[in-house]
Design a protein around this nucleic acid. Structure first.
Lengths: 225, 225
DNA sequence: TGTACATCAGTGAACGCGCGTTCACTGATGTAC
DNA sequence: TGTACATCAGTGAACGCGCGTTCACTGATGTAC
């Protein structure tokens, strides 16, 4: 095989790995898919799913339409794949940011701060996610994917609230379950208002995250004792 | 002019007003516009703005496409007119529900209850409003209309918080201004999650409004003293 | 009141463009011997 | 190593449909005298 050959010939091996890192891999469909998804994410954020033509996406990715249809059956399928990729990324990011939070001296404040910095309103994703939610209203398979993701987030935040509050010896006047739901709703509301609301452009980043910090601290202060 | 003529001839006046109330008015463009807007609202909620063809809207309203174009220049103009009509309606409704609130014995709780019952998640409007917000992202005139409406809501809620808290002799640990923004964001988040989120169908009406009640009471409890 | 004309509200056929999707083809990459 | 063949990834022309928009026309309603 090519691989074992390569192992026996250091020089050729080197060339092969250059091929794999560089833009000339043996089989590059996976890479093409990634580039198309990247292009789709940007295009959908800029002009919306419906307004974005397959040609727009391909042009941005540096392909022709044929390439698109050799990777995806339809434009709708692409939307689903994009949502799947991005939500997986976001969950992994959250995982990474929040592990070990219960060892902080003040886990509540720490969690608020970390969540704010992790999920800082990412304009692109808010736009595409919102559109996907709207889309899911009329496409049951999309609704399933959306629900799964929402439930996963809720599960993780609930667990976080539970471990953090018990470690800190705090009593919750509202079940962790419900508290998590409230926090998620508040987050959504603030972030959506920032991106979609008639947001005044002047330093709205800080304004929105300040607002959310205030709100979360108010909430948590009166939910714990 | 026709009006002063009518005033001088009681009988004719009566006939004219029958014409205006009944479905045979002299000039019925206004009524046609209303019917088209009604049809558009339902159609947009069902299948979305982009997917809704002008023909779909007209068919639902009982017209042909020509009627549409003799009342609106483009499909986009219709969207703007629809948003204008609905926001005006909503503001009027809010006005009506919230006047006199400061005379309640417990204005905070009363306001929470009235807001919840007034702005109970109206699925149709949440869908259309969200889509309009997304649309406004790419259409500056729409963004202006959206901002105006958001600011108006914020102004009214701020005033309500101020008068209600001062009448009740409460001190706010957060400016009314900011508190109003937080409440609006929370409301948006809850309502959007209910309609767009992977909402479990089982009695989600009550669940969502219970959640919002809990959240608002928590917030207001720790924002006042 | 009756007649002639003007305007209004809405019809429905037609246009033309852009888009999603298909498909026959091509050059590059990999495999067999 | 070299040659012949197979598969893969992507090309780009073509198709056909549906949609937004236009426009010449019509019957109903209103106005003048």
């Amino acid at each position: 095989m090519g691989v074992s050959d390569a192992l026996m010939h250091p020089i050729q091996c080197c060339i092969v790995s250059v091929h794999e890192i560089d833009s000339r891999p043996k089989r590059r469909r996976a890479e093409t898919v990634e580039r198309l998804l990247d292009a789709a994410l940007e295009t959908f954020a800029e002009i919306g799913f419906a307004a974005a033509s397959v040609e727009d996406i391909c042009r941005r990715g540096g392909f022709t339409r044929g390439a698109f249809y050799s990777s995806f059956k339809t434009k709708d399928e692409l939307f689903g794949a994009l949502f799947a990729r991005e939500t997986e990324r976001n969950l992994a990011l959250a995982e990474q940011q929040l592990t070990g939070i219960e060892h902080e001296s003040d886990p509540v404040t720490a969690a608020v701060e970390r969540c704010l910095s992790t999920f800082r309103a990412d304009r692109t994703w808010v736009l595409v996610h919102t559109e996907y939610a709207l889309y899911a209203t009329r496409h049951p398979e999309a609704a399933t994917a959306l629900r799964r993701h929402a439930e996963e987030l809720h599960r993780r935040l609930t667990a976080l609230v539970e471990t953090a509050s018990s470690r800190a010896g705090l009593r919750l006047s509202v079940p962790a379950n419900r508290l998590a739901r409230i926090v998620l709703a508040l987050h959504d509301g603030v972030v959506i208002r920032e991106v979609l609301g008639g947001g005044t452009a002047r330093s709205s980043d800080r304004a929105a995250s300040d607002l959310e910090r205030t709100a979360l601290l108010l909430l948590l202060r009166s939910a714990t004792s």
